[in-house]
């Protein structure tokens, strides 16, 4: 259970980071979301073997990481699993391309595309709170049920964490000197955890209803909360143009 504990605590860290005060965090969430999609779309649209074009695309995450002081080491630790997956897929090209050099270039292209697009999403994740992302989804008319489920999942994780802790402690008290949880009771353990969490979730949800919450009524709380400032427009148009220039930089420079 220490794994789940660790993972969930990491989640809290990201949430804390996203909620911290900073000019990038204060930017309109919809504009940040748009720039992220814009950047990813342009990055992955770069043809295979165009490694030079990809090198230009590094500028966007590099500027953000340096100017807004986002920890690159922490980022690498969090996305290390994706490195492995990209590496495994990329290395196959060494053997199946016409020449080893072509395979190597293709592998690097795939690797860079993957890393750059993950970095862009990571920037969005560590600078935008869950509420802001959900409100951005509401603004673009994503159905309320989906937005509400996203918010509930996020909030209920806390309930799940507490229940996990309670059940684990109870188990260890009943089975002292035992290393880990016996495989034979894994199903019961997970099932019990699920049922207890469902019950607690119902209690929380009922109390929300008592206070007048109705999921089918679209939340209006976000209205007026996100005033589009001049800096948001500068951010949106500025980066949109820069990203296009980065994408086609090699053509402009006739490289």
């Amino acid at each position: 259970m220490s794994n789940i504990d660790k993972a969930l605590h990491e989640m809290c860290d990201i949430e804390k980071e996203a909620g911290s005060e900073g000019s990038l965090n204060a930017m309109h969430p919809l504009f940040k979301l748009f720039i992220t999609i814009w950047y990813v779309a342009f990055t992955v649209s770069i043809p295979n073997y165009k490694l030079d074009s990809l090198i230009f695309m590094i500028i966007y995450p590099l500027v953000i990481f340096i100017v807004w002081d986002i920890s690159f080491v922490k980022c690498l630790k969090r996305i290390k699993v994706i490195f492995v997956a990209l590496f495994l897929l990329g290395i196959g090209n060494l053997f199946f391309s016409k020449t080893v050099l072509m395979g190597l270039i293709l592998m690097l292209c795939l690797f860079m595309k993957g890393i750059l697009s993950i970095l862009a999403v990571y920037i969005l994740a560590v600078t935008t709170r869950i509420e802001d992302i959900c409100n951005a989804l509401r603004i673009i008319r994503v159905p309320e049920l989906i937005v509400m489920v996203i918010m509930l999942i996020y909030r209920y994780i806390n309930i799940l964490l507490k229940e996990t802790k309670r059940i684990t402690e109870a188990y260890y008290m009943l089975a002292p000197n035992q290393k880990g949880i016996n495989v034979k009771v894994w199903g019961q353990f997970a099932g019990q955890l699920m049922l207890r969490s469902i019950d607690r979730a119902h209690i929380v949800y009922d109390s929300m209803n008592v206070r007048g919450y109705e999921w089918s009524v679209k939340s209006q709380a976000y209205r007026g909360k996100y005033i589009v400032k001049r800096i948001d427009f500068v951010w949106l148009f500025g980066w949109s143009i820069v990203i296009v220039l980065l994408r086609f930089g090699t053509y402009f420079l006739n490289i």
Partner: peptide
């Protein structure tokens, strides 16, 4: 209405389960 709470908690459960490799 009852399903909404279940959707949330089941989502949290699977979300947490997906974190464990």
């Amino acid at each position: 209405q009852i399903k909404v709470a279940e959707m949330g908690i089941m989502g949290a459960f699977v979300f947490a389960a997906q974190m464990i490799n």
